Amino acid sequence: MNYLSESAAGVSYGVAIRHAFEYLLSRYPEVFVIGQGLWSPWYVGNSMTELDKKFGKHRVIDTPVSELACTGLAVGASLAGTRPIVVHPRMDFMLYATDAIVNQAAKWSHMLGAQDAPAVTIRAIINRGGEQGAQHSQALHSWFAHVPGLRVVMPSTASDARDLLIAAALCNDPVMYIDDRWLYERTEDLAPVKELDLRREGPRVRRQGKDITLVGSSYSSYLCEQAADVLAAQGIEAEVIDLRVVSPLRPELIIESVRKTGRLCVVDGGWRTAGLAGEVIASVCEAVDSMRARPVRVTLPDAPAPTSRPLEKLYYPTKETVVQAALGILR
């Protein structure tokens, strides 16, 4: 397939990520991919199937188990003129690479007076559910969105999964690209690739509405879209805004929406305290003088993820959770 000029019907989120890798590796010789388990679908699902066979194991490099080593290598290689994409199959274990991400990649442009910057992309995969427990289920996007100098993107659709990964790899700044396995089977008809300038990307309205504003990112944005369908059956028009880029956060579109609806519900797959939902609400409250109801956030409880399947059903927000929160605001 010519991903530059042809559309594709019914492409899943996971396969769309693979399309992005194939697009980049076939057109940009300075791009290479490095990380653990890249030759194994058990680690990265269908998002990198047989890329090593097509482009060679010198371009798709499966490394020993050292998150810090492969990330540090990529940061250094990016300063030498390449565009590495580091893949961390679990965001939880990426914490071993925090020094390379937070103290090195995010700081070099500032410390070099903007004369150079590491054009490195760090792909962090969120894995949750399936009784995996507290050490295998974390979404830590709020941590990294807190760090100046690091762009953080969280696609919710197949088209964004493809196009934001391409944009991240072609951006001259360090970018954390976070994808969620719960979205891998979500499908969409894809238009031909149009290379985006990540510096210009921000939230998008996924659904127009006048009664309440629902805001999310990644899988939480998908929950908002599903909840809006349920609310529509009850005659309630919810406006759904997908953040897409959580750092730098650009709240202007959300503020405009809340001025129209007067009500705000923010859904986030992270914990409540010091989380993304609170940041979005604060940004809106600083700009909007009056609202029809107090804003509400739907998040994970401030507790580690359970291993028990019945407890998981209580722990993770669902579309029904979002619907009930929205109805509470509307009452």
Results as ranks from 00 to 15, higher is better:
99 D>R: 03
129 G>L: 05
123 R>A: 12
187 T>C: 13
177 Y>P: 05
166 I>Y: 02
119 A>W: 01
245 V>I: 15
220 S>C: 06
206 R>M: 12
183 L>Q: 09
275 G>Q: 10
167 A>F: 12
79 L>T: 06
247 S>N: 13
241 I>W: 07
236 I>V: 15
174 P>N: 00
192 P>G: 01
137 S>A: 09
155 P>K: 11
117 A>F: 01
209 G>R: 08
36 Q>E: 15
219 Y>D: 02
318 T>C: 05
320 E>S: 10
106 A>M: 09
185 E>V: 12
130 G>N: 09
83 R>F: 12
298 V>I: 14
110 H>Y: 14
125 I>Y: 04
163 D>S: 13
145 A>P: 00
141 H>A: 10
213 T>G: 09
12 S>L: 10
314 L>E: 15
113 G>M: 02
15 V>F: 02
237 E>V: 00
302 D>Y: 00
8 A>W: 08
156 S>L: 05
297 R>H: 14
123 R>F: 13
207 R>F: 04
140 L>Q: 01
93 F>V: 03
311 L>R: 08
90 R>F: 14
10 G>M: 03
314 L>V: 11
101 I>Q: 02
4 L>M: 09
117 A>K: 09
90 R>T: 13
26 S>A: 15
183 L>M: 14
40 S>T: 13
10 G>N: 15
123 R>K: 14
126 I>A: 07
65 V>P: 05
238 A>D: 04
88 H>D: 06
18 R>V: 05
25 L>S: 06
150 L>C: 00
120 V>I: 06
55 F>Y: 15
25 L>Y: 04
44 V>L: 05
238 A>N: 03
149 G>Q: 06
49 T>Q: 08
314 L>H: 14
322 V>C: 13
59 R>P: 05
214 L>R: 00
174 P>G: 01
239 E>G: 00
8 A>Q: 13
37 G>Y: 10
95 L>I: 06
195 E>T: 14
135 Q>M: 09
297 R>G: 15
193 V>Q: 02
35 G>F: 10
13 Y>N: 07
97 A>C: 03
145 A>D: 01
154 M>V: 15
80 A>M: 10
81 G>M: 11
39 W>L: 11
28 Y>V: 04
66 S>N: 14
232 A>M: 11
33 V>R: 13
117 A>S: 15
282 A>Y: 02
170 L>N: 01
